[in-house]
Amino acid sequence: MSEHYLPGDPPVRLVLRKSARARRYSLRVSRLDGRVTLTMPSHAPESKALQFAREKAAWVREKLTERPDEVIAELGAVLPVEGAWLTVAHGARGAVRLEEGRIEVSPRAASVPAAVAGVLKSLARDRLAADSDRFALALGRPYSRITLRDTRSRWGSCSADGALMYSWRLILAPPQVLSYVAAHEVAHLAHMNHGPRFWATVKRLWPEYEADRAWLRENGEALHRYRFGD
């Protein structure tokens, strides 16, 4: 990969990526971090690839303006939690607490965003563990452990030894979407693929999964707009 810039005010950083599988030039603008990637066939000249990018400069800038603004989880910020909008505010007590319409943070907290992330991660673990338990029981396939991460490329995974991994940001999605992801990963305990039998298992565990899967595809990237100082 190499780095270039599209001219303009301001210049746009462009990452040029060669691929043996690519058959044409393609541009991608990440909604997560605004990274612009130009993929090109490995045998094609870079000059033509960069000319292609310059011709698409207006499209690139339009896509960059469509990126949602970042929201820092500080006092006054409004965050989606399990389908409800909660405002980050100071609370009278020492611990971070979820109250009606609020995430209350102690005035003594060293970092408000980090404190908010802590309570959201704890809530996500509770919800995902509960869903994983009930789906694994229904399937008759136990899992070995659960871990939470802040992943960008996937919402969950299931390893060959039955270890489940989830993105804790699922707590920012509607609760039924979180449950769909849990059902999806638990179904992998029986089928380590995405074939017809796998999807039939997902449907048995979570019958309305299609709508929740579509929500995640349409809105999932926006969950990364919320920043917690990490």
Score class of each variant (00 low, 15 high):
residue 2 S to W: 04
residue 4 H to P: 01
residue 6 L to P: 06
residue 6 L to W: 02
residue 12 V to C: 10
residue 15 V to H: 12
residue 15 V to L: 13
residue 15 V to D: 05
residue 16 L to D: 09
residue 23 R to A: 11
residue 25 Y to E: 01
residue 26 S to C: 12
residue 28 R to E: 11
residue 35 R to W: 03
residue 37 T to R: 05
residue 41 P to F: 01
residue 41 P to N: 01
residue 42 S to Q: 15
residue 43 H to W: 14
residue 48 K to L: 11
residue 54 R to S: 12
residue 55 E to W: 02
residue 55 E to N: 12
residue 55 E to S: 08
residue 58 A to H: 10
residue 64 L to M: 03
residue 64 L to F: 00
residue 67 R to D: 10
residue 68 P to G: 05
residue 69 D to C: 08
residue 69 D to P: 14
residue 70 E to G: 13
residue 71 V to D: 12
residue 73 A to L: 10
residue 79 L to A: 02
residue 86 L to P: 00
residue 91 G to T: 03
residue 96 V to S: 03
residue 96 V to W: 01
residue 98 L to S: 02
residue 104 E to K: 03
residue 104 E to I: 00
residue 105 V to A: 08
residue 107 P to L: 13
residue 111 S to I: 02
residue 111 S to E: 10
residue 111 S to A: 05
residue 115 A to Q: 07
residue 115 A to T: 07
residue 117 A to G: 09
residue 119 V to Q: 07
residue 119 V to K: 12
residue 120 L to K: 08
residue 127 R to A: 09
residue 128 L to H: 06
residue 129 A to R: 15
residue 132 S to L: 01
residue 133 D to A: 12
residue 135 F to Y: 15
residue 136 A to K: 04
residue 141 R to L: 08
residue 142 P to E: 12
residue 143 Y to T: 09
residue 146 I to T: 11
residue 150 D to Q: 14
residue 151 T to Q: 15
residue 156 G to A: 03
residue 157 S to Q: 14
residue 175 P to C: 05
residue 176 Q to I: 04
residue 177 V to G: 00
residue 179 S to Y: 03
residue 182 A to N: 10
residue 182 A to V: 06
residue 185 E to W: 00
residue 185 E to G: 03
residue 186 V to W: 06
residue 191 H to L: 14
residue 191 H to R: 13
residue 195 G to V: 10
residue 197 R to H: 13
residue 201 T to Y: 07
residue 201 T to C: 15
residue 202 V to T: 07
residue 206 W to K: 15
residue 207 P to K: 07
residue 207 P to H: 07
residue 208 E to H: 13
residue 209 Y to S: 06
residue 212 D to G: 00
residue 213 R to P: 04
residue 213 R to T: 08
residue 214 A to R: 15
residue 225 R to N: 09
residue 225 R to D: 08
residue 226 Y to Q: 06
residue 227 R to L: 14
residue 227 R to Q: 14
residue 228 F to C: 08
residue 230 D to F: 09
residue 230 D to Y: 07
residue 230 D to N: 01
